[in-house]
């Protein structure tokens, strides 16, 4: 193999090489994380890493690198520049196709090869633990009563949290002030300190404070409540949180996919290898435990399903961004 290395090096530059029928990584695989250390995407990548390593699904080691600069653009640009290199797997969310809409970021999702959406994170409306608001109906009334002074915290700007807020604006016919923070964790600290009125965090971002009674979820933006599971607090499990729709907020479903992608122009054999690898990962007990613990929906999309999903989601974001005047071009 070593003697062939120069040859392999040259062939890696070609779109697809027929010589390598059964493709396997020949060196350490780099997991590129397009968010800050310790964030949802980091934990996603490390959960995959843990599942692969504990079950010996791959012979080569895995190196996790954090490239969360520019809201993740750093990681995507880095992966784009590694065109043809099947030893880099970039982990992200829908920011891979949403970021280029609102900022000049020097990549689009078409520069990458999506491999699998492995899990979908939920969004919920949260209020402070001792807030008098009991349910989503009470939430809508309270927002309206504040007359345009309701403050909603969220992670980043022109990203999913602000988008949910905009959709919420429209659904309930009110004007909410959106306050962007660096991460959902920061937003949670601010809400539990009573400095803001609500936020729309993912379950995992707020579960610690929910257990402590400092924040409380009102409803989830999904068609159905979450899957039944153990109690999180003394009285409630995730499945006890009603859907926002059932409470009269007309937003059907809003979820955040967690997607792993290769750079562009990689050999088809490599794509097949990683599709197979991630499919196996999704079957491991470690992975199922991760999905349940973070209260996400474990739904794996690969190949045509994934492309269809991305195209649909992209159009939906584009429409809202156009209306808000956020589109960069």
């Amino acid at each position: 193999m070593n003697k062939l290395a120069p040859l392999a090096f040259a062939m890696a530059l070609l779109p697809a090489s027929a010589a390598l029928a059964e493709w396997k990584p020949s060196k350490a695989v780099e997991f590129v994380v397009t968010a800050g250390a310790g964030g949802g995407t980091d934990i996603f990548a490390r959960a995959v890493q843990a599942a692969v390593q504990k079950n010996n699904l791959m012979s080569q080691p895995i190196i996790v690198t954090i490239k969360g600069g520019g809201s993740g653009a750093e990681g995507y640009v880095y992966t784009k520049s590694a065109e043809g290199d099947p030893h880099k797997l970039v982990f992200g969310t829908h920011n891979m196709y949403v970021l280029p809409l609102a900022a000049k970021v020097a990549f689009t999702h078409r520069d990458l090869t999506p491999i699998a959406a492995m899990v979908f994170d939920e969004f919920m409306i949260w209020v402070k633990g001792d807030s008098p608001i009991k349910d989503a109906k009470g939430f809508v009334e309270a927002v309206k009563a504040k007359g345009g002074q309701w403050k909603m915290a969220g992670a980043q700007s022109k990203d999913s949290d602000e988008l949910v807020t905009k959709l919420l604006d429209k659904a309930i016919g009110a004007k909410i002030i959106y306050v962007p923070y660096k991460s959902g964790g920061e937003a949670d600290v601010q809400l539990s300190g009573g400095h803001l009125d609500s936020h729309v965090n993912n379950p995992a971002e707020s579960v610690g404070n929910w257990k402590a009674g400092k924040v409380r979820p009102l409803c989830v933006f999904n068609r159905e409540p979450l899957a039944a599971g153990p109690k999180v607090t003394e009285t409630q499990a995730w499945s006890d949180i009603p859907t926002c729709r059932s409470q009269g907020i007309a937003i059907d479903q809003f979820q955040q996919p967690r997607i792993a992608s290769l750079p562009g122009k990689v050999p088809a054999e490599a794509v097949a290898f990683y599709q197979d690898l991630l499919r196996k990962v999704a079957e491991t007990p470690e992975w199922k435990e991760y999905v349940a613990r973070t209260a996400q929906s474990g739904r794996v999309l690969i190949g045509g399903d994934l492309t269809k999903f991305i195209d649909g989601d992209y159009v939906r974001f584009q429409a809202v961004f156009k209306e808000e005047g956020w589109l960069v071009q």
Binding site: G69, G70, S71, A73, A102, A103, K104, V105, Q156, S157, K158, D159, E162, P180, Y181, K182, W326
Partner: peptide
Amino acid sequence: GMDTISGSL
């Protein structure tokens, strides 16, 4: 780089 508040570069 990325401006957290406005989401622009």
